[in-house]
Design a protein around this nucleic acid. Structure first.
Lengths: 189, 189
DNA sequence: GGCGTACTATTCCGGGCGGAATAGATGTCC
DNA sequence: GGACATCTATTCCGCCCGGAATAGTACGCC
């Protein structure tokens, strides 16, 4: 039972809702804006589906053709697939693993830049984060207006909370850099 | 001027401190525990160094040999390399880009699991996060005792702040799930 | 009615990443 | 002093990802 990738989890999850061919999965995921949550490209999706079939997580249930359109291969999730899906979700929920975000790398090497530039750049970052939070709030309002339960958009709330925390940390750090409370060891020019 | 990868940034940054051969870079990065911040493997490092040389960001300055040990090729960063390094750091500092962490994926598909199991798993997650925070605090105490300036470990403080924010969000979400304030649409068993 | 654009469904391919392998040199332990 | 582990320095290999290509079809527009 190999650990699924993030794309693998969302792909298997849509197949768990009903038999489908890969292109239909792709369209459905796009319609649901899953590409905001997971890296979604046709190439990766088809490769993932191939792997699922090889691992017995899904089974081919037929080949359709509409007119002279390309053939489409319809797949169905297997019991092993459902088990792997649940196991992977549980694993991702229950254990925190380091995913090596790139901002810590940048701030770890920020001493290569002068204090003034770092302050300016962090200011730009916090502005772009607050803009994103604004988009999220607008989208959450629309969702609430349509009566969607919070549980169905928990991931949006999570992402918002993380962005707010980062913006707050940046604000505090910028102000400490500005007052000199946080001495900067970098180049002066 | 291609955008550097996170490993590329740290590798170029150590070369900016002085001429070195790749293995020395690797050892130095390990000694500094850079592998906690960036994905570090010999294979990736050597490939990155090759790319730097091809792009003119570094230049070969000689080949040494000690006894009958394998030859080692010493590289030096070029002005173009320093420029690329500073540009990449600025880019990573100033702009927030979505890096698709996997927890939102998991929570977006968590409705495949019953509420009780989700609560249990989120509890495990928050425990593992608080444990990590404990390690960070211990390591920060040691750092403070050695008189290292906060600016040199800003990335650790950032990571700690993000972990605390996630733990708080999890605590709040778990309690809302427990009281039923947050209705769960998943399977009952 | 013909021209261009967008859709359907999938394949292909270059490149990076990371774990494993290599192979000689040196240290360690009894 | 012989065996075994560890260090030094690098290469190799397979896998996966993601952007681009493909090729035929329907549709809109004048």
């Amino acid at each position: 039972m190999p650990q699924l990738t993030p794309l693998g989890v969302t792909a298997l999850a849509v197949l768990a809702e009903g038999d489908m061919h890969p292109y239909e999965m792709y369209q459905l995921m796009l319609a649901r804006k899953e590409d905001r949550v997971v890296r979604l490209s046709p190439g990766s999706l088809y490769r993932a589906v191939e792997r699922f079939a090889a691992d017995g997580l899904i089974a081919e249930v037929g080949v359709e053709r509409e007119g002279n359109r390309p053939e489409r291969t319809v797949y169905s999730i297997t019991p092993a697939g459902r088990a792997a899906l649940r196991a992977s979700i549980a694993e991702m929920l229950g254990r925190h693993v380091n995913e090596f975000p790139e901002f810590p790398v940048a701030i770890g090497e920020a001493h290569n830049l002068p204090a003034g530039e770092v302050i300016r750049l962090l200011g730009e970052r916090v502005a772009s984060i607050r803009e994103t939070i604004g988009f999220i709030d607008a989208s959450l309002e629309g969702i609430a207006a349509r009566g969607v339960a919070t549980a169905h958009v928990l991931n949006v709330h999570y992402t918002r909370a993380m962005l707010v925390a980062e913006a707050d940390w940046l604000d505090s750090t910028i102000s400490q850099l500005g007052t000199g409370a946080l001495a900067w060891p970098g180049p002066s020019n």
